[in-house]
């Protein structure tokens, strides 16, 4: 919806308007730390990132899993990212364009989400919660919630997990 509006606006204003308009798109820079584990058997975790707003269906922004496994085998364990599966995942089909991604290695992982691309919607001002959940094969599961207020110009939030997630933070600007 919002995406289409942008497109119309762009068309109406001509090509010259494209650049400033793109620069003004809401952009979320997200940082997710996956802790390095000293365990005998380590598998990179499945991670889901989604956005919640009261009264609206949760929106999945990104999911990291075994996207390339043969025959869609990677989707078999998606339900282990349990809260996300219930909130949003079970109503989606996979691979999800602009949302599905490969699992990532331990360390600080960066993700840039631009409104209107992939799963990222253009936000209207209000209260939101960004949720990051990680579930690891033969490991644990953890969820970090980052509530924030979007005032139309900028927002930032940070939280820290205790087991499967390290520091999680983002800045959102337009």
């Amino acid at each position: 919806m919002q995406f289409r509006l942008t497109g119309l606006t762009t068309a109406a204003l001509g090509a010259g308007a494209l650049l400033p308009n793109a620069a003004a798109a809401q952009t979320m820079d997200l940082s997710i730390e996956l802790p390095r584990m000293t365990v005998a058997e380590y598998h990179k975790p499945y991670v889901a990132v989604w956005l919640e707003k009261e009264g609206q269906a949760p929106r999945t922004l990104s999911v990291w899993y075994d996207v390339d496994k043969r025959g869609g085998e990677g989707t078999k364990w998606l339900h282990d990212v349990r809260q996300w599966w219930r909130a949003s995942g079970r109503t989606m089909s996979f691979p999800a364009d602009g949302i599905s991604g490969a699992t990532r290695a331990p360390g600080v992982q960066k993700l840039r989400l631009v409104a209107g691309k992939g799963g990222m919607p253009a936000l209207t001002p209000g209260q939101y919660t960004l949720v990051v959940e990680a579930a690891r094969e033969v490991g644990g599961r953890e969820l970090v919630r980052l509530p924030f207020t979007w005032n139309g110009s900028s927002a930032t939030a940070a939280a820290k997990g205790a087991s499967e997630l390290g520091a999680v933070s983002f800045t959102l600007k337009r």
Binding site: T75, L78, G89
Partner: peptide, 8 residues
Amino acid sequence: TVVSGNDN
């Protein structure tokens, strides 16, 4: 009781 994917 809760599974994901298309063939389980």
